[in-house]
Write a protein that binds this DNA or RNA. Structure first.
Lengths: 246, 246
DNA sequence: CCGCTGCACATTGTAGACAGTGAGCGAGCT
DNA sequence: AGCTCGCTCACTGTCTACAATGTGCAGCGG
């Protein structure tokens, strides 16, 4: 399969971090970078050899990825990179919209000065990055902004759930459309403004619109309407019958 | 996240019971039954011996429990049964209220005949069990009813998230107050009625009230003692310095 | 030519060791 | 005494080996 062993810049640094954590990160970014595509099988022994470790850390990493919803694991049949069926994407968007909305409401209710300052700082950085054309960091800044908002909501559970949803979508969605980015950061500003003003309703409304808008954009760019309700439970779990036996 | 209760619901054939799955179930019910108390340490080797297996299945089970939020795992310091700090309980209630509410709205929007019939059947069983004094099955019936509602919402992700939240609370909350049960099942009826009537707003409102009400009841019963015993915000997450060295 | 049956193997599940680390406990110092 | 510094050891993290099982393929019968 020659997965370009070079791409996996496996520098097992000094890190006292447990091995399986590093593996987890590695595979995770491999999925994010598209080096591992949805449906692709994750063979423990192969990965073990690739990273120069035994199968145990690999197994743990895979379990962690499974907990994050990034891989599907079926008993005795191995693990596959999870895919997102259009229906699932819609569900994620819907729930994320609901939760982001609620979180924005909470943030507007609390109005914690320092946390909002932090969000504003990130917002500024995002907007300058946008105008100066440096788009490479935008994805990360977007992540940071939403994380800052989540913190401002001061509900740990909600924050965690949002993080999880963002992870699932961010890793599996297609890269962002530049045009959309403009709108996106304007909306960010609008949300934050409403929060700072303490206008709960407006903040909630804008947050929801933001998520739904971004979701629409993604649905457009990716599969389009090519899959109304047909795929149903396929959920990207097609094992991709590659057959690489020798 | 909702273990592997794949969409199919748990008809016959509970999967090929891999050992670690059995262990998972075992420990899980041990927590539910109170045989394992919050803060208690889970020593892999001890459990391995207790169940007559090696440590690997134990580790996997612990990971799964961790994914469900039932145990806390800190690197190199072992796993402990998770506790619920009062703040966390409030967060769970709040988010669950939000999600149950939304789910009820969706159910009212869809009005899937067969799924609602199912919910009604469970409702009936619950009410008869209540009046006939057989309270031992009520907890399970309550679980089933909410699961049925979740299905009726027809949003898999939402259903899974609710399942997870219910799991976390059900296992760690104190047993239910009989008086509350009466009210609870009346509210169940009210919610379902609104859904059947297709009144989205009412259904959402009632679902939220139901969760908040139940939550309040729990906070009352546990909160008082909890405030005295472990007023700290860390509540159950202190590793419980027992020191059982020999 | 095509479907069925049984075999062989690729992979996962489990077991049993070894290695590394953090936490108490006591010796030595001040 | 109080404190620091090692020592010791119960653990977890990892590795290697073995067992169990699903899958594809060859070979056979139709």
């Amino acid at each position: 399969m020659a997965r370009d062993s070079r791409t996996a810049g496996k520098r097992l640094g000094e890190q006292h971090d447990s091995l399986h954590n590093l593996i987890y990160q590695e595979i995770r970014s491999a999925i994010a970078d598209g080096r591992l595509k949805p449906g692709e099988r994750l063979v423990e022994e192969r990965l073990a050899e690739e990273y120069g470790v035994s199968r145990n850390p690999i197994r743990e990493a895979i379990r962690a990825l499974h907990a994050d919803g990034l891989v599907d694991v079926s008993s005795r049949r191995g693990a596959h990179v999870a895919g997102l069926a259009p229906d699932t994407v819609r569900e994620i968007i819907e729930i994320r919209a609901l939760l982001e909305s609620h979180n924005a409401r909470l943030a507007a209710r609390n109005r914690n000065a320092v946390l909002l300052k932090n969000a504003e700082a990130i917002l500024t950085r995002g907007r300058t990055a946008l105008t100066s054309g440096r788009r490479r960091g935008l994805r990360e800044l977007n992540e940071q902004f939403h994380r800052a908002l989540a913190e401002a909501g001061r509900n740990q559970l909600l924050s965690d759930m949002l993080e999880s949803l963002r992870t699932r979508s961010a890793l599996l969605f297609s890269p962002d459309d530049p045009a959309r980015q403009e709108v996106s950061w304007q909306e960010h500003a609008g949300i934050l403004q409403a929060i700072v003003d303490g206008d709960e309703e407006l903040a909630a409304k804008r947050a929801m619109a933001h998520v739904l808008g971004a979701g629409e954009a993604h649905l457009q760019s990716t599969g389009a309407a090519a899959t109304a309700a047909g795929a149903r439970d396929s959920a990207g779990e097609l094992p991709q019958k590659k057959q690489e036996r020798r």
